[in-house]
Amino acid sequence: RPCLDELPELNKLNKGEAFQVLGFDFDKAKGELLDSKVKRLGIDFPVLDADPSSMFSQKLPSGLPATMLINKQGKFVKWLMGPQTAESINRHLGLE
């Protein structure tokens, strides 16, 4: 349930100018199944169908929800574990 609870915050962040939010379904849904899940959950940001952690030489997190922060230069910053808010993500990126 924590993954679902943070969706409104992630949708809000994605609508702003400072962030691009991308999702990944750790249940590994693809195609129509993923599309219907995104629609049903009201996700307003792109959801990848491939695990992005390998692109940044990172291991998958041991728990969920997990948020991978990537800077504007495309470099991995850190994993945030647990549900996040706009405030917590801004704080971790030093944007407050």
Score class of each variant (00 low, 15 high):
residue 61 P to I: 10
residue 64 L to R: 07
residue 40 R to V: 10
residue 24 F to S: 12
residue 47 V to W: 04
residue 71 N to G: 08
residue 52 P to A: 08
residue 28 K to C: 03
residue 58 Q to K: 14
residue 79 W to G: 02
residue 16 G to V: 12
residue 40 R to H: 08
residue 86 A to F: 01
residue 54 S to M: 09
residue 69 L to Q: 04
residue 25 D to N: 10
residue 35 D to L: 04
residue 67 T to I: 02
residue 37 K to E: 01
residue 58 Q to F: 06
residue 58 Q to W: 02
residue 81 M to S: 09
residue 8 P to L: 06
residue 35 D to G: 12
residue 52 P to K: 13
residue 64 L to K: 04
residue 61 P to G: 12
residue 14 N to M: 05
residue 74 G to C: 08
residue 96 E to Y: 12
residue 94 G to A: 01
residue 17 E to Y: 01
residue 91 R to P: 06
residue 11 N to R: 09
residue 26 F to Q: 07
residue 47 V to K: 01
residue 61 P to V: 05
residue 88 S to E: 12
residue 38 V to L: 02
residue 19 F to K: 07
residue 19 F to I: 02
residue 14 N to F: 06
residue 10 L to C: 05
residue 6 E to W: 01
residue 64 L to G: 09
residue 66 A to S: 14
residue 23 G to H: 01
residue 69 L to H: 06
residue 81 M to T: 11
residue 88 S to I: 02
residue 41 L to P: 03
residue 83 P to S: 13
residue 55 M to I: 04
residue 16 G to D: 13
residue 22 L to C: 06
residue 51 D to Q: 12
residue 4 L to R: 08
residue 5 D to T: 00
residue 66 A to E: 04
residue 56 F to S: 12
residue 91 R to W: 05
residue 40 R to A: 15
residue 72 K to T: 07
residue 65 P to E: 10
residue 44 D to S: 11
residue 68 M to E: 10
residue 66 A to I: 05
residue 76 F to Q: 11
residue 66 A to G: 07
residue 41 L to Y: 06
residue 9 E to D: 06
residue 73 Q to N: 15
residue 51 D to P: 01
